[in-house]
Nucleic acid binder design. Structure first.
Lengths: 149, 149
DNA sequence: TCTGAAACGTTACCAGA
DNA sequence: TCTGGTAACGTTTCAGA
């Protein structure tokens, strides 16, 4: 459950470069390549490392409209139902149930305002959605991975 | 600026497995390994691919407290200043300036409620912060990478 | 696109704490 | 027993033709 110092340093290197070779990582943490691989395999098996991905800049592909949409549900809607429907929108990258007056929070990307407007109206038309409140992102200031510290 | 179909498919594979070999990707998109590498290099050069990372599950490391913190600033605070201060908190993984009554939105991870309370009080004590409003995440339903579609 | 050398991933086996 | 190192081998990367 708890990570030792070397595990944290390995994750830190992989956060910076997810394709770093085991040898390169080993040079930074003073371990041989196989030893690093063994630790990475163990971290994957424990679920600490969920996987590896590419970081795509939505802005560079023209998807420069980003928003958080709060969902107010008209009856006790289960998280499973929200997930099942949210998944069908490729524009929705994150979904949470939350505290506060809203029931759920969606993180949405769209290519432009018209696209966002269309997605929002589709989401609003979901049977379990009573109303929505959107917060549009003006400038993304900081975007980084969770770090184990 | 615009991605062709093969670029999108390459990114889709890399989203699933950021460490996939060029040969493996090539098998999926019907391209030779060097051809895939050229495209990936070009996507990196264009900024579409910002980099590669490891996806760490905060919950697996015991960091199961997650929140969005809305920042209300008492004077016209610049995005640069918010960024400069937000960066100093390792708990803050995202920061945006936003529309609506709040000025900025922070995405925060903490090891537990006490930890979150401490971070929140530190953020609230920042000179440019008038007040904050927090939305705690109850259940993370969906978490995926932005996809170019 | 092809090819060959260098680098890398992966497994097996061994040593020390 | 657990963790790491070394060696060996097949695969991948990558540059040059």
């Amino acid at each position: 459950m708890t990570l030792d110092d070397i595990d944290s340093r390995i994750i830190r290197v992989l956060t910076t470069d997810g394709r770093a070779s085991y040898g390169t990582i080993g040079a930074e943490v003073n371990l041989s390549a196989p030893a690093v691989k063994r630790r990475v395999d163990r971290l994957r098996a424990r679920g600490v490392i969920a996987g590896f991905t590419v970081r795509v800049d939505p802005g560079a592909t023209g998807w420069d409209t980003e928003a958080y949409v709060e969902l107010f549900c008209n009856r006790r809607t289960s998280g499973e139902e929200i997930l099942r429907r949210a998944q069908t929108y490729p524009e929705v990258v994150e979904a949470f149930t939350v505290t506060g007056d809203a029931d759920a929070l969606l993180h949405v990307f769209a290519s432009d305002m018209h696209h966002f407007e269309r997605v929002l109206s589709e989401i609003s038309a979901e049977p379990f959605v009573a109303r929505t409140r959107s917060v549009l992102v003006l400038s993304p200031l900081l975007r980084r991975e969770f770090l184990t510290m």
